[in-house]
């Protein structure tokens, strides 16, 4: 897909950010910048990492594409398929389960008419369940992009979805300012 590859290019600001990140690691150890750069790439290119995007990151770091693929497939935060504008990741581990995470998941499924792992037909929302996000004292909770929404109730999560539906893609790097009480 040579033609597609040519179109993959960080914006100027992302490119200078990438260079700054690479500079944090010793000479010859630029591969260390891989995870931060994949976060940056995911944020730049619609919330997921296509093979072409991963190849681009490999070229920036002067490493082999396989070194990017093997890492991108290991870490759960990297989406290897397209996702909706708002990726709702509901924590389902013990402490959140104790406080009603299963009810939250069910309510989102009803509201969006999708099951866990699916994306709405309009491409706005993807629903996933994830493991402990370190927010057990404010359970149940979900993460959307870089924002934690905590102390959720079935009512507040419905309100959250309505508010998110009116917004553009949720940022993976910057928290959004939505208050659902």
């Amino acid at each position: 897909m040579a033609t597609e590859k040519e179109t993959i290019q960080f914006s100027d600001s992302a490119l200078s950010k990438a260079k700054e990140i690479i500079g944090r690691y010793p000479e010859g150890k630029q591969k260390s910048a891989l995870l931060p750069l994949l976060h940056l790439a995911q944020s730049e290119f619609d919330g997921w990492l296509s093979p072409a995007v991963m190849d681009y990151v490999a070229s920036l770091l002067q490493i082999k594409p396989i070194e990017v693929y093997e890492v991108a497939t290991f870490y759960t935060m990297f989406n290897l398929e397209p996702v909706g504008n708002h990726l709702l990741e509901v924590c389902r581990t013990g402490p959140c389960w104790l406080r009603g995470a299963e009810d939250i998941v069910k309510r989102i499924e009803q509201k969006l008419n999708i099951k866990v792992g699916e994306t709405t037909a309009d491409g706005k929302f993807t629903l996933k369940t994830v493991e402990c996000l370190g927010s057990c004292g404010t359970a149940p909770m979900l993460q959307c992009g870089a924002t934690f929404f905590e102390n959720l109730s079935e009512e507040s999560v419905e309100m959250l979805i309505e508010k998110l539906a009116k917004q553009k893609r949720s940022s993976y790097l910057r928290p959004t300012e939505i208050n659902v009480g």
């Binding site: 591969k31 890492v71 935060m77 493991e131």
Partner: peptide
């Protein structure tokens, strides 16, 4: 002294110190 913050990407195992170091080197944890 220079001090930097480095993000992981969703892997419990990287809390294990040698997996963390692998991850910090840009590898699987």
């Amino acid at each position: 002294l220079d001090l930097y913050v480095h993000p992981g990407a969703g892997a419990y195992i990287c809390g294990e110190e040698t997996a963390l170091l692998e991850s910090l080197e840009g590898k699987r944890g």
